[in-house]
Computed example of a mutant assay.
Amino acid sequence: MEISPAPRRSPVASVAELKAAIDVALQQIGDGQTAVQAAGEKLAEAQQTLAGALEGSGHETVEAAQASLTQASQELEECLAATLVAVEQAQLYVATL
């Protein structure tokens, strides 16, 4: 039985290749940020619609629904903040190349 040699590692990427890959990733992050912002806007609309439709209702399920939407909005904001940090860190790295 013949043993094949281990696959060769590809050479280290050039600085230009690294920068290009990071640029692609930053664009993808930007696309994700746009989607997160759009989702946040839709959640805000849903909260307003729900609040208007159920105004005056003191039922605990209505309050729970509103609380869940508020939490979802906050988590989207946290997500967006995390992506901003990721972009900043990637840009700092590119600056060192």
Score class of each variant (00 low, 15 high):
Glu60Trp: 06
Glu2Met: 05
Pro7Ser: 07
Arg8Asn: 12
Gln47Pro: 00
Arg9Leu: 13
Glu17Ile: 07
Gly52Leu: 07
Gly56Asn: 03
Thr49Pro: 00
Ala51Ser: 15
Ala67Val: 09
Ala46Trp: 04
Ala16Asp: 15
Gly58Cys: 02
Ser14His: 05
Gln37Gly: 09
Glu17Arg: 02
Ala39Gly: 05
Gly40Ile: 03
Ala67Cys: 03
Gly58Pro: 02
Gly56Cys: 10
Leu54Tyr: 08
Val15Met: 11
Ala38Cys: 09
Thr34Leu: 06
Glu55Gly: 03
Val12Cys: 09
Glu60Leu: 14
Thr49Ile: 08
Thr49His: 07
Thr34Tyr: 02
Glu17Asp: 11
Gln27Leu: 14
Ala64Asp: 03
Ala51Arg: 15
Ser4Leu: 11
Ala20Lys: 05
Gln33Asn: 10
Val36Ile: 14
Gln66Phe: 05
Val24Trp: 01
Thr49Lys: 12
Ala65Arg: 03
Gln37Thr: 14
Ala67Leu: 04
Leu50Asn: 09
Ser68Cys: 10
Gly32Thr: 11
Ala51Tyr: 09
Ala38Asp: 09
Gln66Ile: 01
Glu45Met: 04
Ile22Asn: 06
Ala53Thr: 12
Ala39Lys: 14
Glu55Asp: 10
Ser57Glu: 10
Gln37Lys: 14
Ala38Trp: 02
His59Tyr: 13
Glu41Leu: 08
Ala38Arg: 11
Ala21Trp: 00
Leu18Trp: 07
Gly40Ser: 15
Gln47Trp: 01
Ala6Thr: 13
Ile29Cys: 01
Ile3Arg: 08
Pro7Met: 11
Ala64Asn: 07
Ala65Phe: 09
Thr61Cys: 03
Thr61Gly: 00
Gln27Asn: 09
Leu54Gln: 07
Val24Pro: 00
Gly40Pro: 02
Gly58Ala: 12
Leu54Val: 04
Pro5Phe: 04
Ser14Cys: 06
Leu18Asn: 10
Val62Gly: 01
Val15Ala: 15
Leu43Cys: 10
Gln47Gly: 07
Lys42Pro: 00
Ala25Cys: 06
Ala35Trp: 03
Val15Thr: 15
Leu54Arg: 04
Ala20Gln: 08
Glu63Trp: 11
Thr49Arg: 12
Ala51Trp: 06
Ala64Pro: 00
Gly58Phe: 07
Ile22Asp: 03
Pro7Ile: 05
Gln47Ala: 08
Leu43Gln: 12
Gln48Ile: 12
Ala64Gln: 14
Glu45Phe: 04
Ala35Gln: 11
Ile3Gly: 03
His59Cys: 05
Ser68Ile: 02
Leu54Asn: 08
Gln33Pro: 00
Val15Gly: 05
Gln37Glu: 12
Gln28Trp: 01
Pro5Asn: 04
Leu43Phe: 06
Ala51Val: 05
Leu26Arg: 13
Val15Tyr: 11
Asp31His: 13
Ser14Glu: 01
Leu26Met: 13
Pro7Trp: 03
Leu69Pro: 00
Pro11Val: 10
Ala51Phe: 10
Leu43Met: 10
Glu2Arg: 14
Ser4Thr: 15
Glu17Tyr: 05
Val12Ala: 15
Ala39Gln: 13
Gly32Asp: 01
Gln27Ile: 12
Ser57Asn: 04
Gly40Asn: 13
Val36Lys: 02
Thr61Pro: 00
Ala67Pro: 00
Ser4Trp: 03
Glu17Phe: 04
Ala65Gln: 05
Ala44Cys: 00
Asp23Cys: 08
Glu17Ala: 09
Glu63Asn: 14
Glu55Trp: 11
Glu2Ser: 11
